[in-house]
């Protein structure tokens, strides 16, 4: 695996850019895909957002100054692209963010690319009921196992604020599941 610093150098040189970008895509596509998919829920939407994320990375790598780590910068772009995508969808359909998320969660019931059981479906519905920032923090912390310090860099939020948001999210999800399923 090519070191991040070398990769950035190669990406910023015209003649090495294409090969370096291929390496970058190869290294990060799955991690970024799953981060995005947990936000937008639908595979086709996740594919669109993932492509937009990499296009943005490719077009802006020249101006990347290395003030943050490359992967931190990429996770931030993916997070912003996911939220932008969902907000755009809400605007186009003239509905709220909550309605977009609620609709996407309900669609999972018949989604061929969702093989979760009843509890996993309910869990996704509970996550989808959270406000956008809490949802982002919860999914990135719970599934991707980022530390609060990493998340603080990615989302440019204080560690204290992140902890508080995460705890509120866990409480809300627990409540949601309790009211919809007594067995958990």
């Amino acid at each position: 695996m090519v070191e991040e610093k070398e990769l950035v150098n190669a990406l910023q040189q015209e003649e090495a850019r294409e090969a370096a970008f291929r390496e970058l895509v190869s290294q990060y596509k799955e991690r970024l895909y799953w981060q995005i998919r947990r936000m937008v829920l639908d595979h086709d939407d996740a594919d669109d957002v993932l492509q937009n994320t990499f296009i943005k990375i490719y077009r802006n790598i020249g101006s990347f100054k290395g003030e943050s780590k490359l992967h931190t910068w990429m996770y931030r772009i993916a997070a912003n692209e996911s939220i932008t995508f969902l907000n755009k969808k809400a605007r186009q359909k003239n509905i709220s963010w909550e309605q977009v998320k609620d609709g996407a969660a309900k669609k999972l019931e018949s989604d061929v690319y969702f093989e979760g059981d009843k509890i996993q479906l309910l869990f996704q519905k509970a996550i989808a009921s959270l406000p956008e920032k809490q949802q982002l923090i919860f999914t990135m912390k719970y599934f991707d196992d980022h530390t609060y310090e990493e998340l603080s860099e990615i989302l440019e939020t204080s560690v204290g604020g992140l902890k508080s948001s995460y705890h509120i999210a866990v409480k809300k999800i627990t409540e949601f599941i309790k009211t919809h399923n007594e067995t958990l």
Partner: peptide
């Protein structure tokens, strides 16, 4: 008590073909 897996899947060869598409 939360599930550890999401239950999401991807189409066959999705990640394999992604590199060429995006490039």
């Amino acid at each position: 008590k939360f599930p550890k897996q999401t239950g999401f899947t991807v189409p066959k060869n999705y990640f394999e073909s992604f590199d060429d598409r995006i490039l």
